[in-house]
Computed example of a mutant assay.
Amino acid sequence: MPRLVPVFGHRFTPAAPSPSGSPVISAWQTDIIYCGANLLEYLADEYPLEQGRKTLSPISVRAPFWSRFVEAANRAEST
């Protein structure tokens, strides 16, 4: 299982050799979701300079192991 690098609290990004622009993942026990398409989007959404929360951009970079885990969990919840 690839390691995660802590960003803040229970938010993480995949460690190297993960591709540049990897998503930020919230991992709390078995609840694992995307929090941002990349670190810049996560920070802009978590600490906005303007009022209003934007929607999550599509995830363009898949993180080995973790993307499969998040997507499989979300498919199971929607059925």
Rank of each mutant, 00 (worst) to 15 (best):
R11M: 10
P14S: 11
N38Q: 00
G52C: 11
K54A: 11
P64Y: 08
I32F: 04
V61T: 13
T55C: 12
S78P: 01
R53Y: 05
L56H: 06
P17C: 11
P19H: 02
R62D: 02
I59A: 05
L56M: 12
F65Y: 14
I32Y: 09
G52P: 10
A37G: 03
A37I: 03
P14H: 04
T79C: 14
T55I: 10
F69Y: 12
A63K: 01
I32R: 05
G36V: 01
P14W: 00
F12W: 08
V5K: 13
Q51H: 12
A27H: 11
P19W: 07
S22W: 00
F8P: 00
G36Q: 08
V61M: 08
P6G: 04
P14V: 14
G36T: 01
L39Q: 05
R53C: 06
N74Y: 04
A16K: 05
S22F: 00
I33Q: 13
E77L: 15
L39H: 05
T55K: 15
R53D: 11
L39W: 06
A44F: 05
S67P: 02
Y34S: 01
G52E: 08
F12A: 06
G36P: 03
F8Q: 06
E50A: 15
P6Q: 07
G36E: 02
L39Y: 12
A76H: 09
P64T: 06
P48Q: 07
S18N: 05
D31C: 08
V24N: 04
Y42P: 02
I59S: 05
R53E: 11
E50V: 13
R53V: 08
R53W: 14
V5M: 10
S20A: 12
F8N: 09
R75A: 15
P14Y: 01
E71M: 03
P58H: 12
F69T: 15
R11C: 15
E46I: 00
E46Y: 04
V7C: 04
D31F: 11
S20W: 04
S78K: 14
T13K: 12
L56P: 02
A15N: 04
A37F: 04
P2I: 09
I59G: 03
P17G: 11
Y34R: 02
F8M: 06
V70S: 02
C35M: 13
A37H: 00
S57W: 04
Q51E: 15
S67Y: 02
C35F: 01
I25R: 07
Y42M: 01
V24E: 01
G9A: 10
A76K: 08
V7S: 03
F65T: 11
